Amino acid sequence: MRDPYTAGANAAQLEALKDQGYTHKRWLTARDNRVRVAQGSSRFDHRQMDGVVAD
């Protein structure tokens, strides 16, 4: 199962960055034709999130 592992790895990485003093996250993409876009009823569109800063 890749999803539970990925979720745990991402959570650990975020905590490590917080411990180092980082306070925000900026979405960055490769800006190529492989970047995921929303399809159907999906709300996940990485192209639209490129450069967006989140807390």
Rank of each mutant, 00 (worst) to 15 (best):
L28H: 08
G21H: 01
A16F: 01
T23C: 01
H24D: 11
Q48W: 04
S42W: 00
G8L: 09
R31P: 04
A11Y: 05
M49N: 10
D19Q: 15
T23Q: 11
V37E: 14
Q13N: 13
Q13C: 06
Q13W: 06
D50R: 04
K18N: 05
N33D: 15
W27Q: 10
Q48M: 08
Q20S: 09
K18C: 04
D50P: 03
V37N: 07
A30F: 05
D45F: 02
V35T: 15
L17S: 06
S41R: 08
V35E: 04
L14K: 05
A9Q: 12
T29A: 00
S41Y: 07
L14I: 11
E15F: 04
H24N: 12
R34M: 12
R31F: 00
T23V: 10
A11E: 15
A30W: 13
M49I: 02
V37Y: 07
K25W: 10
H46Q: 15
R26G: 01
S41F: 07
A9K: 10
V37Q: 14
F44Q: 14
D19Y: 02
R26C: 03
S42G: 04
R26K: 11
G40R: 02
A16E: 12
V52F: 00
V35H: 00
F44C: 06
S42K: 00
S41P: 13
V35G: 03
F44T: 15
H24E: 08
D32S: 08
R26P: 02
L28G: 12
T29W: 00
F44W: 08
R34F: 09
V52P: 03
G8W: 07
Q20V: 01
N10C: 11
T29L: 00
T29Y: 00
N10E: 14
G40H: 05
D50M: 02
G21Q: 03
Q48S: 13
A30G: 13
Q48E: 15
Q39A: 09
R31G: 05
A30Y: 07
V52I: 11
A12N: 10
F44S: 14
R34L: 15
R34Y: 10
D50F: 01
G51M: 00
Q13Y: 09
W27C: 11
G21E: 02
R36M: 12
V37F: 04
A11G: 10
F44R: 14
Q48N: 15
M49E: 11
A16Q: 08
Y22W: 08
S41W: 10
Y22E: 04
K25R: 15
D32I: 07
R36T: 13
K18L: 04
G40Q: 03
H46Y: 13
F44P: 04
E15P: 02
S42E: 03
M49V: 07
G40M: 02
N10I: 13
V52C: 00
D19I: 05
T29G: 03
N10L: 08
G21Y: 00
T23E: 12
M49H: 06
S42Q: 01
D32C: 03
K25S: 09
V37C: 06
R31I: 03
Q48K: 14
